[in-house]
């Protein structure tokens, strides 16, 4: 099931009867009004929190981390050993909510990593930005642990049959970041250029990075 707006009605969307958006809007406004009255939060603080999140949490952050790992083997070693410390070198952190441990997992010729949160939707938000709806869907959460190869094919990722797939189930305390493989033919490229090749899905493991077309 997914996180649709109104009126999408895909036939396989198990959307049942979502409360209408107008109703939800009223209920949320009611709760916010109560909390304002009790001095717990203000509407202004809420607006600021949304702006802050959207301004700072984006896949370009994760891409910068990956690109650095591609060009700097010593950084990559630090990233794989202690990801929290390594991303702090680039000015990022995982402390948006409370301390969350980050583990970076590297794709190689023989191993491909994929992340999921089967229990809810844990995701390295600060590095990847807001998570896509499919990541939070029960369809992805239930199936990627059972049939990762099939799920990856749906995403257009066909791996060599000999490539092992490791699926990492995130938790509230431990999140993962996939370090995708650097595409062949990018040897002469600089870090900033390389970062542009790193897609959000490649850092989830449901995509691969490709060299720019010549």
């Amino acid at each position: 099931m997914s996180d649709h707006g109104d009126g999408h009605g895909h036939e396989h969307d198990h959307a049942h009867d979502h409360a209408s958006s107008a109703t939800m809007s009223q209920r949320v406004a009611g709760l916010v009004a109560t909390l304002e009255r009790k001095g717990v939060v203000t509407g202004q603080q809420l607006d600021r929190a949304v702006e802050e999140f959207l301004a700072h949490a984006k896949p370009a952050n994760g891409a910068a981390v990956v690109a650095r790992a591609w060009v700097d083997p010593a950084f990559k070693a630090r990233l794989l050993a202690d990801a929290n410390a390594a991303i702090e070198e680039l000015g990022f952190d995982m402390r948006h909510w409370s301390y969350v441990k980050l583990r970076a997992v590297e794709n190689t010729e023989h191993l491909h990593n994929v992340i999921v949160c089967t229990l809810c939707s844990c995701y390295p938000l600060s590095l990847l930005g807001p998570s896509p709806a499919w990541y939070k869907s029960v369809a992805y959460r239930s199936r990627v642990v059972r049939d990762p190869r099939g799920v990856l094919e749906e995403f257009g990722v066909t791996l060599d049959p000999g490539t092992e797939i490791e699926v990492w189930d995130s938790t509230a305390e431990l999140r993962y970041l996939v370090v995708p493989r650097r595409p062949a033919g990018t040897e002469g490229m600089g870090e900033a250029e390389l970062a542009k090749l790193v897609t959000r899905d490649s850092m989830i493991g449901t995509g691969l990075c490709a060299a720019p077309p010549r």
Binding site: D3, S25, L119, W134, V138, D169
Partner: peptide, 25 residues
């Protein structure tokens, strides 16, 4: 909520607009 490995949830719907929030609320 513990859906890992469960069958029957259908295909993964990737056709959605990738917006962080669909509604203000």
């Amino acid at each position: 909520h513990d859906v890992g490995g469960m069958h029957g949830f259908g295909p993964i719907d990737r056709d959605e607009v990738d917006e962080p929030f669909h509604h203000e609320w």
